[in-house]
Nucleic acid binder design. Structure first.
Length: 392
DNA sequence: TCTGGGGTCCTAGGACCC
DNA sequence: TCTGGGGTCCTAGGACCC
């Protein structure tokens, strides 16, 4: 198997950059993107804003104290979706092997394309320049033989960085990084790894495997391999979502059931519209609820057919919601409805046609079975049982 | 110590079928 | 009639990421 060349490309402070791309007068300013809850929480900050100590999760008023000339803008998800699609389209001109990892990042296999360039870095430079010229978006690029190394590489040098991470550089460049910077290791796992003296990515390899296995269980070998620079370079080109969800957090707990229901309905209206726009239906409906006392719970049901219309989803969710009826956790602070097990509408219709054909075959079979049953009384018993079940 | 809303993947037990 | 292994699906919960 020959060595692949994978690029990981991600847009620097995407939300803030998107607003600057739309309104060039914001260029060079300390832009902060706010979400209108709990006093304007900052969800993204331009590098100029970060320079003044402003970080995400801050409240706008705190940011103003740090830097009064800060430029607040408000979240605009339509803008992000639009630019995300343009980003994807631009990268598509180089390769069909693209994996959309999130709204602002892709993995792309450029093994073939890179042969057309005199120097490997020329391709990265060209992509970076086109992103700036055509979309006014700054990107980071990591170049490596697999997805994990490419991802780690693109994080090494921000913003507007281009970083190559070769397999032979794993010990010198990857191993010294703190374990919390390893993609896939999060806040719950870090303290447990610290307990077994794993503080850097290299420690994952240096510590006895048994100790690592005690913490990471089945995923231990996977992460040790990653630390050794061994990882997948399979590009998942499927861009259709696997689930669509709609959720809300309430700063003030809701105590009226009818009000909760109306918020649920509102979410489901949005959810089903999105599903129809994406030409998908779902087979599983999941409903989650959070209460004032911090308890959260989820219920899901899988149907034997696919749906995407508001009324049917709402009826299903009401059944799930009903399962929490007699619990007393105080008011409701969080609701979430998710449609999963998605399938393209056209595929479902094809299957329905096949299914119809099956039913016809089944009926033919049953008639024959009846002949058999008459001759074998024992089997007739089964038929009665079967009929009884059908009544249910 | 941590905002809110959008996702993905994994695990473990139980049910069911072969 | 009983036992057991293997595979798949469903459900609830958790971890992680952007």
């Amino acid at each position: 198997m020959s060595v692949r060349i994978i690029f990981h490309i991600d847009i620097n402070s995407f939300f803030a950059s998107a607003h600057i791309a739309k309104d060039p007068s914001l260029k060079g300013e300390a832009v902060v993107v706010c979400h209108h809850v709990k006093g304007n929480v900052i969800t993204s900050a331009s590098y100029e804003a970060r320079y003044h100590g402003i970080e995400t999760a801050m409240i706008l008023s705190e940011a103003r104290k740090l830097y009064p000339a800060v430029k607040p803008v408000f979240v605009d998800f339509e803008l992000y979706t639009e630019l995300s699609e343009k980003f994807y389209d631009l990268i598509s001109t180089y390769s069909t092997e693209i994996e959309q990892a999130s709204v602002d990042e892709v993995y792309v296999d450029l093994t073939d394309k890179i042969k057309e360039y005199a120097q490997p870095l020329d391709l990265a430079t060209e992509i970076q320049k086109r992103m700036l010229d055509e979309l006014s978006l700054p990107v980071n690029i990591g170049i490596a033989p697999n997805k994990f190394l490419a991802k780690m590489a693109s994080d090494m040098n921000k913003p507007l960085g281009i970083t190559v991470l070769r397999k032979r550089e794993v010990q010198s460049k990857l191993w010294p990084l703190p374990i919390e910077e390893m993609f896939g290791i999060g806040r719950k796992t870090v303290p447990r790894l610290h307990e077994i003296d794993v503080f850097t990515i290299g420690d994952l390899v240096k510590q006895p495997f048994e100790k690592v296995k005690a913490v990471l269980a089945n995923r231990a070998q996977y992460f040790v391999d990653l630390a050794n620079g061994i990882g997948s370079n399979d590009i998942d080109t499927n861009t259709t979502a696997k689930s669509i969800g709609q959720s809300q957090t309430f700063t003030k707990a809701i105590h009226e059931i009818e009000e909760v229901k109306s918020e649920i309905l509102h979410d489901i209206e949005t959810l089903s519209r999105r599903a129809r726009q994406d030409f998908v239906k779902g087979k599983t409906i999941q409903f989650s609820i959070g209460f004032e006392n911090k308890e959260t719970s989820a219920r899901s049901r899988t149907l034997d057919y696919y749906i995407n219309d508001t009324k049917e989803i709402f009826e299903r969710v009401m059944l799930l919601f009903g399962e929490f009826e007699n619990q007393d956790y105080g008011g409701v602070t969080f609701i979430s409805t998710t449609l999963t097990n998605l399938k393209d509408i056209r595929e479902i219709e094809e299957q329905l046609d096949l299914f119809k054909a099956d039913i016809q075959n089944d009926e033919a079979l049953k008639l024959e079975d009846l002949e058999v049953l008459r001759r074998y009384p024992k089997m007739e018993m089964k038929l009665h049982a079967y009929k009884a079940n059908v009544k249910d």
